[in-house]
Amino acid sequence: MQIREKLSANLSLVKEKSPLIHHITNYVTVNDCANIVLAIGGSPVMADDLEEVEEMVGFASALVINIGTLNSRTIESMLSAGLKAKELGVPVILDPVGVGATKLRTNTAARLIQALKPEVIRGNMSEIKVLAGLEVAIKGVDSLADEQDGSVVAKTLASELDSIIAITGKTDVVSDGKQVCLLDNGHQILADVTGTGCMTTSLVGTYCGVTKDYFSAAVAGITSMGLAGEIAHAALRHGEGIGTFRTRLFDSIYNLTPELLAREGKIRYE
C-alpha cells in the first residue's frame, strides 16, 4: 500500500474506531489538544494524577506525553503511565517541548526516552537537534535552529533510538531510520497560534491509536495539520487574523476527509 493510500485508510479508521487517546500534557494547550482529537474523530482523555494514570492508559489506544509545563508530580505520572503503556503494548508518543531550554526539560526528556522508548518523537528542529546531541540555540520553547541537515538528523536519531522521528517546520521531516519523508503542507500563520505543535502531536497520537504503522501515522498527523492550516488560511477574509484562523483550523480538521487528505497531501520521499 502506497503512503497516500495509508493516509486515507488511517483517517477512515480514526473516524470508524474513535480511539481513546490518553494525554499527559501541558496546561497551556490541553483544551486545544482535546478538541483537535475530537475534531479528527478520536476521543481524548486528559488524566495526569499518579493514582489513576496506569488504570486510564489501560483503556487507551495511545499515550501522548508532552513536557511543555513540567512539574515533579507530572513527571512521575508520565513515567508510570508510560511504563504501563509499554507493558500493555500501547504506543507512546513524546513531544519534548522546550528540551534544551533548561536542565529539567533536558534531563526529563532523556529519562523518558530511556525508560519508555517512545514509538514516535515529534518536535521542532531545535528540540530534535538537542536530543541528537547537537549544539543549537533555543528561545524558551521556540526553535531557532535552521532546517539544514534535517533529514540526516531525523534518520540518524530514528536509527539510534529505534523510534519514528518527526520534525515539524517549514518542511516537515519524518524518518524511521531507513526512509525519509518530506512534507510540504502548511502555512507560516500556524507558528503564530500557540499550541499548533502540541495539537500536531495529538493528531499523530490519534493516528497511532488505529495502526501499528507508526511511520504512516506520523505522516498522517503532520499532513492533516499542515493541510488544515492551508485551508483555514485560504478562508480568511480581509480584517480577520489568528483568532478566526484558529477557529477555522478546527473546522478544517473536522471536515477533513480521507480522500482530501490523500489527494492534497504534499508528500515526497528523499
Rank of each mutant, 00 (worst) to 15 (best):
L112H: 01
V99F: 11
L182M: 07
S43G: 14
D146Q: 11
N255S: 11
I231P: 13
E5K: 06
R237E: 15
D172N: 05
Q2K: 15
K84C: 03
V97R: 06
T69D: 13
K15G: 10
E127T: 04
A34P: 11
N31H: 09
Q188V: 07
T244Y: 00
V130G: 04
G58N: 11
A60K: 07
K103F: 14
L116Y: 00
L157V: 01
L20W: 02
I121A: 07
G89P: 11
C33T: 05
L227T: 01
C208A: 08
D251T: 06
D48I: 05
E135W: 06
T194E: 06
I113N: 10
I253L: 05
G150M: 03
D213H: 08
L79N: 08
S216N: 08
L161W: 08
G123H: 08
D176A: 14
T29R: 13
S77T: 05
V152C: 15
L70S: 13
M199P: 01
A154Q: 00
H22C: 00
L20H: 07
D184Y: 12
S72C: 09
K212R: 15
D49V: 07
L183F: 00
F59Q: 15
L83H: 14
H233F: 05
T244K: 06
P91V: 04
V153C: 01
A109F: 12
G42M: 04
G100L: 07
K266S: 07
T247D: 07
D176N: 13
A115R: 01
D49F: 04
G150N: 10
A145D: 01
S163I: 05
L161D: 10
S18Q: 14
S175A: 15
T171R: 14
L190F: 00
G229M: 00
V152K: 15
A217S: 10
I164G: 13
S72D: 15
D49S: 07
V92K: 10
C181L: 15
L203E: 01
Y27T: 14
Y269F: 15
C33I: 08
V210E: 07
L182Y: 03
P258L: 10
L260N: 11
T29D: 10
L7G: 12
P19Y: 01
K6S: 10
T156M: 12
G133W: 00
M125Y: 09
L190M: 07
A132W: 04
Y269P: 15
I242H: 10
V37W: 01
M225Q: 05
I40S: 12
A9S: 13
G221W: 02
A34Y: 04
E264L: 04
G100A: 11
I21M: 07
C33P: 11
V120H: 12
I36A: 12
E160C: 05
I75Y: 06
E16C: 10
D251A: 02
R263V: 05
E76G: 02
D142W: 03
G243V: 04
K86C: 00
T211G: 04
K139R: 09
D184V: 12
